[in-house]
Design a protein around this nucleic acid. Structure first.
Lengths: 193, 193, 193, 193
DNA sequence: CATGAATGAGCATTCATTCAT
DNA sequence: AATGAATGAATGCTCATTCAT
């Protein structure tokens, strides 16, 4: 399995750095290879093409988000608490890795529709877990049981995403994590029964 | 003033169509020129470069959104009603022009950071009007006066944007305007005092 | 019509020189462009791709052979005389243009099957005229009326081609035209009634 | 001697198949290695480089043609009969091995001038035997003693080659061996005293 | 002997922009 | 003002060959 070989992760990490520092279109394969300390051709032993690198980057990094959220779901907390911790977790990962934040919020979106559809497919797993929190809360009576789950999820994710993107476009000038309480309060208010 | 000459608008409209139908990266200057019925070189009599076309497209089309919102602000309605009408207006314009929706939600985001910053600057006017509604509601007691206006605005805009983008990525398969009531309810709940 | 513009012929001629001097695979588009005195991109205003240049080279140069042969056919000579003049004409054109000879006998054959099929299609017109001479001779009683025309044509063309190729591979060291009488004698002997 | 080891022949045969099925330029060393059931690197234990494989393929396969012809020469037949048997033998070997026919008539000719010169050198032995038949016939009075042997040989070989190549380019759609009598008749007619 | 992961040079093509007419 | 022919920089990917194991 290529995905477990050291060079695979090496190239993934190099791609995040190269893309974050040069921008999507200026992160040529040769730059990624150089950053990874391998030859250009070696890239193609692990990835089908440049597009495949990008999708793999997103896939690998999403694992962290998904595992975080799975952990949260297994805890015995209330749905509100779970949502709060999800927001904190989301912000926390990106606040800790500016390169990653730039890549996911800005650069990866410069890819074409085909890639964006694949990225969305990967994102779906994460959003499904978010749906679980929301449904759980609706059943327990914490959240408004009459609300449309899909719209509610889009509100939660759209808000988190907008806030993160704005933070990145402002060059991380303020502390992203400190936004969490204000976001949590507004979103919980919107969702509550 | 170039922007009032007929060919200026002709090229802008051609750009929307060319980008929507071919995708951002496949909408070459020559395609836009052909769609506009002018020679390639003519483009450069009205626009500094390709980037300038894109930014101008956004600028011209934002005017509709901004004017709509200004109209709404001048009405004597409550802030909640104004917010509802803003959401409906926003959805309505995009639901009526799929080409425009594709361009603003998908294609224009494939541009590089520089262009996106300029687009954000243009968007600011719209968001400032949204802020006005929110602040007005906080003053009148309709909205929670303790909330952070910027975060609240990011929630409103992020939600609207996420819902619109999802609708576009799903090929306009469902009615965007019908989503409005559910969105309004959730957002108003989140904002209310 | 692109084929009548001066740059079209300019590029065709440059391609013959570049291919003859560098070999098929070492005649990069940029080399052909340089030889033609135009920019690389200009090539693509006149040719679909590199393959198209090669096929066009063959097509343009075949015109000379075909016109020669048409001229010969219209003359009032005997079929034997026509065949002799065809062989002389064929050798004469290639003996006068070593670059062209190298390209048609050696370099163009390095192309892939797809191109070779297209080249063969172009060649067909020439071979059809050769068939006319042979059939005419069979009808007039000069040539063996029982012979298979296709095989006879393959003998004539195969012989001419082999002799020319050998001459090119021997770096034009001897006079190609001087071979004509010996070839004519052998072939006419084979064909005669 | 490497050429007697089993893997040597294994690779040669794999090369014929790989080239015939994929075409000259698509028969990468790795494909030949896979077809031969060895590792890429193993190829280089038996061949200096890829070019060496190609030349060796031709060399090994020519042995059959040469041995056939030597057999024919040793027989007590007339020169005309020998020539006829040579043509039949030539057609027969290729008609029985379509892969080989494709490789010798089409694919190997896509190689560069350097390789073709080496191939020609290998071919020389075969052509020398053909010369022997012709000279023998001239001495015995069967063939025209005044003819140029080299030109005569080029006629014979060029004709055979052209007929075979045409047959391959027409996807072996007709029976090659059945062409032999017509070819023999025409050539003998051309050569006869 | 045999392997196969790693190498890195090499090239056709696109397209935003210019400028002579 | 308008044209459109000409420009030329810029890049993802392949594959013959090597060499540590």
């Amino acid at each position: 399995m290529k995905r477990n070989k050291p060079k695979y992760k090496q190239i993934i990490d190099a791609a995040v750095i190269a893309i974050a520092e040069n921008g999507y279109h200026q992160a040529q394969v040769s730059k990624i290879a150089k950053q990874a300390g391998v030859a250009d051709g070696t890239i193609y032993l692990y990835f089908k093409n440049k597009e495949d690198i990008l999708i793999s980057v997103f896939q690998e990094k999403m694992v962290v988000f998904v595992e975080n959220l799975q952990e949260i779901l297994k805890s015995g907390e209330t749905s509100s608490e779970k949502l709060c911790r999800m927001i904190e977790g989301h912000f926390s990962v990106l606040a800790d890795d500016h390169h990653l934040a730039t890549v996911t919020q800005l650069e990866l979106r410069q890819s074409n529709k085909e890639i964006r559809l694949k990225i969305n497919a990967i994102l779906k797993e994460y959003l499904k877990l978010l749906d679980e929190i929301l449904i759980e809360g609706m059943v327990s009576g914490e959240f408004n049981s009459a609300m449309d789950v899909r719209v509610a999820r889009q509100m939660v994710f759209g808000t988190i995403d907008e806030i993160t993107t704005t933070w990145v476009m402002n060059d991380y000038r303020y502390n992203l994590l400190e936004q969490a309480p204000k976001v949590q309060q507004l979103l919980l208010n919107g969702l509550k029964a």
